[in-house]
Design a protein around this nucleic acid. Structure first.
Lengths: 217, 217
DNA sequence: AGGAAGTTGAGGAACATCCTCCGTTTCGGA
DNA sequence: TCCGAAACGGAGGATGTTCCTCAACTTCCT
Protein backbone atom coordinates (compact mmCIF):
# COMPACT_ATOMS: atom_id res chain seq x y z
CA UNK A 1 0.00 0.00 0.00
CA UNK A 2 1.17 3.50 -0.80
CA UNK A 3 0.43 5.98 1.94
CA UNK A 4 -0.31 9.31 0.35
CA UNK A 5 1.01 11.26 3.31
CA UNK A 6 4.80 11.19 3.33
CA UNK A 7 4.91 13.01 6.66
CA UNK A 8 2.19 13.14 9.27
CA UNK A 9 0.45 16.49 9.54
CA UNK A 10 0.92 18.64 12.57
CA UNK A 11 -1.98 18.35 14.98
CA UNK A 12 -3.51 21.75 14.22
CA UNK A 13 -3.16 21.15 10.52
CA UNK A 14 -4.93 17.83 10.82
CA UNK A 15 -7.77 19.44 12.74
CA UNK A 16 -8.13 22.14 10.14
CA UNK A 17 -8.09 19.61 7.38
CA UNK A 18 -11.04 17.85 8.92
CA UNK A 19 -12.88 21.08 9.50
CA UNK A 20 -12.38 22.00 5.90
CA UNK A 21 -13.72 18.73 4.63
CA UNK A 22 -16.74 19.02 6.84
CA UNK A 23 -17.41 22.60 5.78
CA UNK A 24 -16.85 21.66 2.15
CA UNK A 25 -19.46 18.97 2.48
CA UNK A 26 -21.99 21.47 3.76
CA UNK A 27 -21.19 24.10 1.18
CA UNK A 28 -21.12 21.68 -1.74
CA UNK A 29 -24.37 20.18 -0.51
CA UNK A 30 -26.23 23.38 -1.23
CA UNK A 31 -24.22 24.99 -4.02
CA UNK A 32 -22.77 21.94 -5.75
CA UNK A 33 -19.55 22.24 -7.71
CA UNK A 34 -20.36 25.91 -8.21
CA UNK A 35 -19.24 26.52 -4.61
CA UNK A 36 -16.02 28.47 -4.13
CA UNK A 37 -12.98 27.49 -2.13
CA UNK A 38 -13.37 30.88 -0.47
CA UNK A 39 -16.88 29.84 0.55
CA UNK A 40 -15.56 26.68 2.04
CA UNK A 41 -12.84 28.53 3.94
CA UNK A 42 -15.23 30.99 5.51
CA UNK A 43 -17.62 28.21 6.38
CA UNK A 44 -14.80 26.34 8.05
CA UNK A 45 -13.73 29.42 9.99
CA UNK A 46 -10.33 29.22 8.38
CA UNK A 47 -8.30 31.48 6.13
CA UNK A 48 -8.56 30.99 2.39
CA UNK A 49 -4.85 30.32 2.23
CA UNK A 50 -5.21 27.33 4.50
CA UNK A 51 -7.67 25.71 2.15
CA UNK A 52 -5.44 26.31 -0.85
CA UNK A 53 -2.44 24.92 1.02
CA UNK A 54 -4.25 21.71 1.89
CA UNK A 55 -6.24 21.31 -1.32
CA UNK A 56 -4.46 23.05 -4.17
CA UNK A 57 -7.36 22.40 -6.55
CA UNK A 58 -11.09 22.12 -6.13
CA UNK A 59 -10.83 18.66 -7.58
CA UNK A 60 -8.62 17.48 -4.71
CA UNK A 61 -11.15 18.70 -2.21
CA UNK A 62 -14.07 17.18 -4.05
CA UNK A 63 -12.27 13.89 -4.08
CA UNK A 64 -11.61 14.01 -0.35
CA UNK A 65 -15.22 14.90 0.36
CA UNK A 66 -17.14 12.56 -1.91
CA UNK A 67 -15.18 9.34 -2.31
CA UNK A 68 -16.89 7.72 0.67
CA UNK A 69 -20.33 8.86 -0.26
CA UNK A 70 -19.93 7.61 -3.81
CA UNK A 71 -18.94 4.27 -2.42
CA UNK A 72 -22.22 4.28 -0.54
CA UNK A 73 -23.92 4.39 -3.90
CA UNK A 74 -22.15 1.20 -4.88
CA UNK A 75 -23.66 -0.41 -1.81
CA UNK A 76 -27.03 0.91 -2.85
CA UNK A 77 -26.66 -0.74 -6.23
CA UNK A 78 -25.66 -4.02 -4.66
CA UNK A 79 -28.74 -3.94 -2.50
CA UNK A 80 -30.87 -3.33 -5.56
CA UNK A 81 -29.45 -6.49 -7.08
CA UNK A 82 -30.16 -8.45 -3.93
CA UNK A 83 -33.85 -7.52 -3.87
CA UNK A 84 -36.22 -10.39 -4.61
CA UNK A 85 -38.05 -8.44 -7.29
CA UNK A 86 -35.92 -6.92 -10.04
CA UNK A 87 -38.44 -4.15 -10.56
CA UNK A 88 -38.64 -3.25 -6.88
CA UNK A 89 -34.87 -3.33 -6.66
CA UNK A 90 -34.58 -0.99 -9.61
CA UNK A 91 -37.19 1.45 -8.39
CA UNK A 92 -35.80 1.43 -4.89
CA UNK A 93 -32.37 2.16 -6.23
CA UNK A 94 -33.76 5.03 -8.24
CA UNK A 95 -35.58 6.47 -5.26
CA UNK A 96 -32.74 6.19 -2.84
CA UNK A 97 -30.22 7.57 -5.30
CA UNK A 98 -32.52 10.47 -6.08
CA UNK A 99 -33.04 11.14 -2.40
CA UNK A 100 -29.31 11.19 -1.73
CA UNK A 101 -28.63 13.45 -4.66
CA UNK A 102 -31.53 15.73 -3.93
CA UNK A 103 -30.19 16.32 -0.45
CA UNK A 104 -26.62 16.87 -1.53
CA UNK A 105 -26.03 18.64 -4.78
CA UNK A 106 -22.30 18.15 -4.52
CA UNK A 107 -22.77 14.42 -4.40
CA UNK A 108 -25.04 14.70 -7.39
CA UNK A 109 -22.47 16.69 -9.34
CA UNK A 110 -19.78 14.19 -8.41
CA UNK A 111 -21.87 11.17 -9.32
CA UNK A 112 -22.95 12.54 -12.67
CA UNK A 113 -19.38 13.21 -13.73
CA UNK A 114 -17.88 10.12 -12.11
CA UNK A 115 -15.94 9.26 -15.24
CA UNK A 116 -13.89 12.39 -14.78
CA UNK A 117 -11.99 13.31 -11.61
CA UNK A 118 -10.44 10.55 -9.62
CA UNK A 119 -13.75 8.78 -9.28
CA UNK A 120 -13.29 6.80 -12.45
CA UNK A 121 -12.47 3.78 -10.28
CA UNK A 122 -15.87 3.98 -8.59
CA UNK A 123 -17.51 4.49 -11.94
CA UNK A 124 -15.97 1.28 -13.15
CA UNK A 125 -17.54 -0.53 -10.25
CA UNK A 126 -20.90 1.09 -10.83
CA UNK A 127 -21.29 0.41 -14.53
CA UNK A 128 -21.52 -3.39 -14.36
CA UNK A 129 -23.84 -3.20 -11.35
CA UNK A 130 -26.18 -0.85 -13.12
CA UNK A 131 -26.00 -3.06 -16.15
CA UNK A 132 -27.08 -6.04 -14.10
CA UNK A 133 -29.88 -4.14 -12.40
CA UNK A 134 -31.30 -3.16 -15.76
CA UNK A 135 -30.75 -6.55 -17.39
CA UNK A 136 -32.45 -8.31 -14.55
CA UNK A 137 -35.50 -6.08 -14.83
CA UNK A 138 -35.58 -6.62 -18.57
CA UNK A 139 -35.42 -10.37 -18.04
CA UNK A 140 -38.21 -10.12 -15.53
CA UNK A 141 -40.26 -8.36 -18.17
CA UNK A 142 -41.22 -5.44 -15.95
CA UNK A 143 -38.92 -2.78 -17.39
CA UNK A 144 -39.78 -1.57 -20.85
CA UNK A 145 -37.39 -3.06 -23.37
CA UNK A 146 -36.38 0.22 -24.96
CA UNK A 147 -35.05 1.71 -21.71
CA UNK A 148 -31.35 1.23 -21.04
CA UNK A 149 -28.83 1.83 -18.32
CA UNK A 150 -27.80 5.02 -20.07
CA UNK A 151 -31.16 6.52 -19.25
CA UNK A 152 -30.41 6.31 -15.59
CA UNK A 153 -27.99 9.24 -15.24
CA UNK A 154 -30.05 11.43 -17.51
CA UNK A 155 -33.23 10.87 -15.56
CA UNK A 156 -31.39 11.39 -12.32
CA UNK A 157 -29.89 14.62 -13.61
CA UNK A 158 -33.29 15.97 -14.59
CA UNK A 159 -34.97 14.98 -11.38
CA UNK A 160 -32.28 16.27 -9.08
CA UNK A 161 -32.10 19.51 -10.96
CA UNK A 162 -35.77 19.96 -10.26
CA UNK A 163 -35.07 19.05 -6.65
CA UNK A 164 -32.57 21.87 -6.51
CA UNK A 165 -35.00 24.33 -8.05
CA UNK A 166 -37.81 23.42 -5.69
CA UNK A 167 -35.63 22.99 -2.61
CA UNK A 168 -36.70 26.26 -1.06
CA UNK A 169 -40.45 25.83 -1.33
CA UNK A 170 -41.21 22.12 -1.81
CA UNK A 171 -38.12 20.02 -1.14
CA UNK A 172 -39.87 16.71 -1.80
CA UNK A 173 -41.50 17.75 -5.04
CA UNK A 174 -39.05 15.79 -7.14
CA UNK A 175 -40.56 12.55 -5.83
CA UNK A 176 -43.74 13.28 -7.72
CA UNK A 177 -41.98 13.48 -11.05
CA UNK A 178 -39.73 10.58 -10.29
CA UNK A 179 -42.86 8.52 -9.71
CA UNK A 180 -44.24 9.72 -13.01
CA UNK A 181 -41.11 8.59 -14.80
CA UNK A 182 -41.00 5.31 -12.94
CA UNK A 183 -44.55 4.62 -14.06
CA UNK A 184 -43.40 5.44 -17.56
CA UNK A 185 -40.58 2.91 -17.31
CA UNK A 186 -42.85 -0.09 -16.85
CA UNK A 187 -43.14 -2.46 -19.76
CA UNK A 188 -46.55 -2.01 -21.36
CA UNK A 189 -48.04 -3.03 -24.66
CA UNK A 190 -49.25 0.45 -25.54
CA UNK A 191 -46.13 2.41 -24.61
CA UNK A 192 -44.89 4.90 -27.18
CA UNK A 193 -41.64 4.65 -29.05
CA UNK A 194 -38.60 6.02 -27.24
CA UNK A 195 -36.55 6.36 -30.38
CA UNK A 196 -32.87 5.56 -30.78
CA UNK A 197 -30.82 4.40 -27.80
CA UNK A 198 -28.25 6.59 -26.15
CA UNK A 199 -24.55 5.90 -26.32
CA UNK A 200 -22.10 6.17 -23.49
CA UNK A 201 -20.58 9.21 -25.17
CA UNK A 202 -23.93 10.96 -25.44
CA UNK A 203 -24.45 10.52 -21.75
CA UNK A 204 -21.07 11.91 -20.87
CA UNK A 205 -21.50 14.88 -23.16
CA UNK A 206 -24.87 15.71 -21.67
CA UNK A 207 -23.63 15.28 -18.13
CA UNK A 208 -20.82 17.70 -18.81
CA UNK A 209 -23.47 20.30 -19.57
CA UNK A 210 -25.52 19.43 -16.52
CA UNK A 211 -22.70 19.97 -14.03
CA UNK A 212 -20.67 23.14 -13.56
CA UNK A 213 -17.01 22.68 -14.46
CA UNK A 214 -14.60 22.35 -11.55
CA UNK A 215 -12.24 24.84 -13.14
CA UNK A 216 -14.31 27.91 -13.76
CA UNK A 217 -11.87 29.94 -15.81
CA UNK B 1 -56.84 51.97 -29.35
CA UNK B 2 -53.78 53.53 -27.81
CA UNK B 3 -50.85 53.67 -30.17
CA UNK B 4 -47.69 53.29 -28.14
CA UNK B 5 -45.64 55.41 -30.53
CA UNK B 6 -46.41 59.07 -30.07
CA UNK B 7 -44.18 60.01 -32.96
CA UNK B 8 -43.16 57.79 -35.84
CA UNK B 9 -39.52 56.71 -35.71
CA UNK B 10 -37.06 57.99 -38.19
CA UNK B 11 -36.45 55.50 -40.98
CA UNK B 12 -32.98 54.46 -39.83
CA UNK B 13 -34.21 54.09 -36.27
CA UNK B 14 -37.06 51.89 -37.39
CA UNK B 15 -34.70 49.72 -39.38
CA UNK B 16 -32.40 49.34 -36.42
CA UNK B 17 -35.28 48.53 -34.14
CA UNK B 18 -36.21 45.64 -36.38
CA UNK B 19 -32.63 44.48 -36.65
CA UNK B 20 -32.38 44.51 -32.88
CA UNK B 21 -35.51 42.47 -32.40
CA UNK B 22 -34.33 39.96 -34.94
CA UNK B 23 -30.89 39.71 -33.35
CA UNK B 24 -32.45 39.49 -29.92
CA UNK B 25 -34.53 36.58 -31.08
CA UNK B 26 -31.45 34.74 -32.23
CA UNK B 27 -29.42 35.50 -29.14
CA UNK B 28 -32.23 34.68 -26.72
CA UNK B 29 -32.92 31.50 -28.64
CA UNK B 30 -29.57 30.08 -27.64
CA UNK B 31 -28.78 31.82 -24.36
CA UNK B 32 -32.26 32.46 -23.00
CA UNK B 33 -32.86 35.30 -20.59
CA UNK B 34 -29.23 35.02 -19.57
CA UNK B 35 -28.30 36.81 -22.80
CA UNK B 36 -26.93 40.32 -22.48
CA UNK B 37 -28.15 43.48 -24.17
CA UNK B 38 -24.53 43.91 -25.23
CA UNK B 39 -24.73 40.50 -26.90
CA UNK B 40 -27.84 41.53 -28.74
CA UNK B 41 -26.25 44.79 -29.86
CA UNK B 42 -23.18 43.12 -31.32
CA UNK B 43 -25.31 40.49 -32.98
CA UNK B 44 -27.41 43.21 -34.55
CA UNK B 45 -24.31 45.09 -35.76
CA UNK B 46 -25.39 48.07 -33.73
CA UNK B 47 -23.92 50.02 -30.81
CA UNK B 48 -24.94 49.09 -27.30
CA UNK B 49 -26.29 52.56 -26.77
CA UNK B 50 -28.76 52.09 -29.58
CA UNK B 51 -30.22 49.05 -27.93
CA UNK B 52 -30.52 50.82 -24.60
CA UNK B 53 -32.14 53.82 -26.24
CA UNK B 54 -34.77 51.70 -27.92
CA UNK B 55 -35.29 49.17 -25.12
CA UNK B 56 -34.36 50.68 -21.79
CA UNK B 57 -34.79 47.37 -20.00
CA UNK B 58 -34.31 43.78 -20.97
CA UNK B 59 -37.94 43.24 -20.13
CA UNK B 60 -39.08 45.67 -22.80
CA UNK B 61 -37.03 43.83 -25.39
CA UNK B 62 -38.25 40.44 -24.27
CA UNK B 63 -41.78 41.66 -24.57
CA UNK B 64 -41.23 42.94 -28.09
CA UNK B 65 -39.60 39.70 -29.14
CA UNK B 66 -41.86 37.08 -27.60
CA UNK B 67 -45.39 38.40 -27.50
CA UNK B 68 -46.22 37.00 -30.92
CA UNK B 69 -44.63 33.67 -30.28
CA UNK B 70 -46.44 33.28 -26.99
CA UNK B 71 -49.67 33.94 -28.79
CA UNK B 72 -48.78 31.06 -31.08
CA UNK B 73 -48.85 28.87 -28.02
CA UNK B 74 -52.44 29.90 -27.38
CA UNK B 75 -53.27 28.71 -30.86
CA UNK B 76 -51.52 25.46 -30.09
CA UNK B 77 -53.68 25.00 -27.03
CA UNK B 78 -56.84 25.71 -28.98
CA UNK B 79 -55.87 23.10 -31.51
CA UNK B 80 -55.34 20.61 -28.71
CA UNK B 81 -58.90 21.23 -27.58
CA UNK B 82 -60.20 20.76 -31.09
CA UNK B 83 -58.61 17.31 -31.50
CA UNK B 84 -61.08 14.42 -31.62
CA UNK B 85 -59.24 12.52 -28.91
CA UNK B 86 -58.55 14.36 -25.67
CA UNK B 87 -55.47 12.26 -25.06
CA UNK B 88 -54.02 12.83 -28.49
CA UNK B 89 -54.76 16.53 -28.20
CA UNK B 90 -52.97 16.67 -24.88
CA UNK B 91 -49.94 14.73 -26.04
CA UNK B 92 -49.71 16.67 -29.23
CA UNK B 93 -49.82 19.91 -27.32
CA UNK B 94 -47.07 18.66 -25.06
CA UNK B 95 -44.90 17.62 -27.97
CA UNK B 96 -45.35 20.75 -29.98
CA UNK B 97 -44.82 23.01 -27.00
CA UNK B 98 -41.68 21.10 -26.06
CA UNK B 99 -40.40 21.33 -29.59
CA UNK B 100 -40.96 25.07 -29.73
CA UNK B 101 -39.30 25.60 -26.39
CA UNK B 102 -36.44 23.27 -27.12
CA UNK B 103 -35.61 25.25 -30.21
CA UNK B 104 -35.88 28.63 -28.54
CA UNK B 105 -34.74 28.92 -24.98
CA UNK B 106 -35.87 32.52 -24.79
CA UNK B 107 -39.40 31.48 -25.63
CA UNK B 108 -39.14 28.83 -22.98
CA UNK B 109 -37.98 31.31 -20.38
CA UNK B 110 -40.75 33.68 -21.34
CA UNK B 111 -43.45 31.01 -21.28
CA UNK B 112 -42.40 29.62 -17.94
CA UNK B 113 -42.56 33.01 -16.28
CA UNK B 114 -45.59 34.26 -18.15
CA UNK B 115 -47.24 35.47 -14.99
CA UNK B 116 -44.52 38.06 -14.62
CA UNK B 117 -43.51 40.59 -17.28
CA UNK B 118 -46.19 41.98 -19.48
CA UNK B 119 -47.24 38.55 -20.60
CA UNK B 120 -49.72 38.15 -17.77
CA UNK B 121 -52.48 38.82 -20.29
CA UNK B 122 -51.43 35.84 -22.39
CA UNK B 123 -51.11 33.75 -19.27
CA UNK B 124 -54.70 34.53 -18.41
CA UNK B 125 -55.74 33.22 -21.79
CA UNK B 126 -53.64 30.13 -21.41
CA UNK B 127 -54.77 29.00 -17.98
CA UNK B 128 -58.39 28.19 -18.81
CA UNK B 129 -57.36 26.49 -22.05
CA UNK B 130 -54.87 24.29 -20.25
CA UNK B 131 -57.51 23.59 -17.66
CA UNK B 132 -59.91 22.41 -20.32
CA UNK B 133 -57.31 20.27 -22.04
CA UNK B 134 -56.57 18.49 -18.80
CA UNK B 135 -60.21 18.21 -17.72
CA UNK B 136 -61.20 16.75 -21.03
CA UNK B 137 -58.50 14.10 -20.79
CA UNK B 138 -59.54 13.30 -17.25
CA UNK B 139 -63.14 12.95 -18.37
CA UNK B 140 -62.03 10.68 -21.18
CA UNK B 141 -60.30 8.53 -18.60
CA UNK B 142 -56.99 8.45 -20.41
CA UNK B 143 -55.02 10.87 -18.23
CA UNK B 144 -54.19 9.63 -14.75
CA UNK B 145 -56.44 11.29 -12.22
CA UNK B 146 -53.67 12.52 -9.97
CA UNK B 147 -52.01 14.61 -12.69
CA UNK B 148 -53.05 18.23 -12.90
CA UNK B 149 -52.53 21.24 -15.10
CA UNK B 150 -49.88 22.45 -12.69
CA UNK B 151 -47.68 19.56 -13.70
CA UNK B 152 -47.50 20.90 -17.19
CA UNK B 153 -45.05 23.76 -16.69
CA UNK B 154 -42.85 21.72 -14.38
CA UNK B 155 -42.54 18.88 -16.85
CA UNK B 156 -41.91 21.29 -19.65
CA UNK B 157 -39.23 23.05 -17.63
CA UNK B 158 -37.42 19.80 -16.92
CA UNK B 159 -37.62 18.55 -20.45
CA UNK B 160 -36.53 21.75 -22.11
CA UNK B 161 -33.68 22.12 -19.69
CA UNK B 162 -32.48 18.75 -20.83
CA UNK B 163 -32.97 19.89 -24.39
CA UNK B 164 -30.65 22.80 -23.70
CA UNK B 165 -28.03 20.56 -22.12
CA UNK B 166 -28.08 18.11 -24.98
CA UNK B 167 -28.46 20.68 -27.73
CA UNK B 168 -24.84 20.43 -28.83
CA UNK B 169 -24.63 16.66 -29.20
CA UNK B 170 -28.18 15.27 -29.46
CA UNK B 171 -30.69 18.03 -30.02
CA UNK B 172 -33.66 15.69 -30.23
CA UNK B 173 -32.82 13.73 -27.10
CA UNK B 174 -35.51 15.43 -25.05
CA UNK B 175 -38.16 13.68 -27.11
CA UNK B 176 -37.14 10.39 -25.58
CA UNK B 177 -37.76 11.55 -22.06
CA UNK B 178 -40.88 13.40 -22.97
CA UNK B 179 -42.22 10.13 -24.34
CA UNK B 180 -41.28 8.41 -21.11
CA UNK B 181 -43.20 10.98 -19.11
CA UNK B 182 -46.16 10.88 -21.47
CA UNK B 183 -46.32 7.13 -21.00
CA UNK B 184 -46.23 7.77 -17.28
CA UNK B 185 -49.18 10.16 -17.56
CA UNK B 186 -51.60 7.55 -18.85
CA UNK B 187 -54.28 6.40 -16.44
CA UNK B 188 -53.44 2.88 -15.29
CA UNK B 189 -54.63 0.69 -12.46
CA UNK B 190 -51.15 -0.06 -11.19
CA UNK B 191 -49.69 3.43 -11.33
CA UNK B 192 -47.86 4.59 -8.22
CA UNK B 193 -48.97 7.40 -5.96
CA UNK B 194 -47.93 10.89 -7.07
CA UNK B 195 -48.43 12.40 -3.63
CA UNK B 196 -49.95 15.80 -2.87
CA UNK B 197 -51.04 18.11 -5.68
CA UNK B 198 -49.13 21.24 -6.55
CA UNK B 199 -50.53 24.69 -5.97
CA UNK B 200 -50.30 27.60 -8.35
CA UNK B 201 -47.86 29.27 -5.96
CA UNK B 202 -45.59 26.24 -5.88
CA UNK B 203 -45.39 26.29 -9.62
CA UNK B 204 -44.54 29.96 -9.76
CA UNK B 205 -41.90 29.61 -7.06
CA UNK B 206 -40.24 26.73 -8.86
CA UNK B 207 -40.39 28.48 -12.22
CA UNK B 208 -38.66 31.47 -10.74
CA UNK B 209 -35.74 29.18 -9.92
CA UNK B 210 -35.78 27.57 -13.33
CA UNK B 211 -35.42 30.80 -15.27
CA UNK B 212 -32.64 33.37 -14.91
CA UNK B 213 -33.90 36.71 -13.60
CA UNK B 214 -34.23 39.49 -16.15
CA UNK B 215 -32.45 41.91 -13.82
CA UNK B 216 -29.18 40.23 -12.97
CA UNK B 217 -27.96 42.55 -10.21
C1' DA C 1 14.13 27.98 22.78
C1' DG C 2 14.26 27.86 17.97
C1' DG C 3 13.23 26.48 13.57
C1' DA C 4 9.93 24.20 10.70
C1' DA C 5 5.29 23.99 9.70
C1' DG C 6 1.18 26.25 9.54
C1' DT C 7 -2.14 30.22 9.30
C1' DT C 8 -4.17 34.45 7.85
C1' DG C 9 -6.78 37.58 4.93
C1' DA C 10 -5.91 41.70 2.40
C1' DG C 11 -5.48 42.53 -2.12
C1' DG C 12 -3.99 42.19 -7.15
C1' DA C 13 -5.16 40.04 -11.59
C1' DA C 14 -8.49 38.59 -14.59
C1' DC C 15 -12.62 38.49 -15.94
C1' DA C 16 -18.03 39.78 -16.68
C1' DT C 17 -22.02 42.75 -16.81
C1' DC C 18 -24.51 47.06 -16.80
C1' DC C 19 -25.34 51.31 -18.69
C1' DT C 20 -24.07 56.30 -19.46
C1' DC C 21 -22.21 59.95 -22.03
C1' DC C 22 -20.82 62.85 -25.59
C1' DG C 23 -18.53 63.41 -30.06
C1' DT C 24 -20.09 62.09 -34.56
C1' DT C 25 -23.33 60.83 -38.18
C1' DT C 26 -27.75 60.66 -40.50
C1' DC C 27 -32.30 61.99 -41.59
C1' DG C 28 -35.87 64.67 -43.45
C1' DG C 29 -38.66 68.97 -43.45
C1' DA C 30 -38.26 73.75 -44.88
C1' DT D 1 -29.45 72.43 -50.24
C1' DC D 2 -29.09 73.08 -45.62
C1' DC D 3 -29.53 72.71 -40.68
C1' DG D 4 -31.37 71.29 -36.37
C1' DA D 5 -33.23 67.42 -34.24
C1' DA D 6 -32.83 62.63 -33.89
C1' DA D 7 -30.15 58.78 -33.75
C1' DC D 8 -25.80 56.30 -33.41
C1' DG D 9 -21.50 54.24 -31.55
C1' DG D 10 -18.68 52.21 -28.38
C1' DA D 11 -15.07 53.54 -25.03
C1' DG D 12 -15.00 53.30 -20.43
C1' DG D 13 -16.40 53.94 -15.39
C1' DA D 14 -18.87 51.52 -11.80
C1' DT D 15 -19.77 47.40 -9.77
C1' DG D 16 -19.33 42.55 -8.90
C1' DT D 17 -17.29 37.90 -8.89
C1' DT D 18 -13.79 34.43 -8.57
C1' DC D 19 -9.19 32.87 -8.18
C1' DC D 20 -5.08 32.52 -5.75
C1' DT D 21 -0.63 34.51 -3.82
C1' DC D 22 2.36 36.23 -0.42
C1' DA D 23 4.57 38.26 3.45
C1' DA D 24 3.85 38.95 8.16
C1' DC D 25 2.45 36.44 11.99
C1' DT D 26 1.40 32.19 15.09
C1' DT D 27 1.65 27.49 16.66
C1' DC D 28 3.68 23.18 17.24
C1' DC D 29 7.09 19.96 18.54
C1' DT D 30 11.58 18.39 19.79
Amino acid sequence: MTETQVRPLRRDAQRNRERIIEAAHEVFATRGFAATLDDVAHHAGVGVGTVYRRFPTKEALVEAVFTDRLEDMITLAEEALAAPSAWDGLVDFFRRAARMHAGDRGLRDAALTMDQHHFARIGELMVPLLHQIIDRAHAEGTLRADASMHDFPIILAMITDLAQNSAACRPELYERYLQLIVDGLRARPDNGDLGPQLTEDDVQAVMKECVPPLKSR
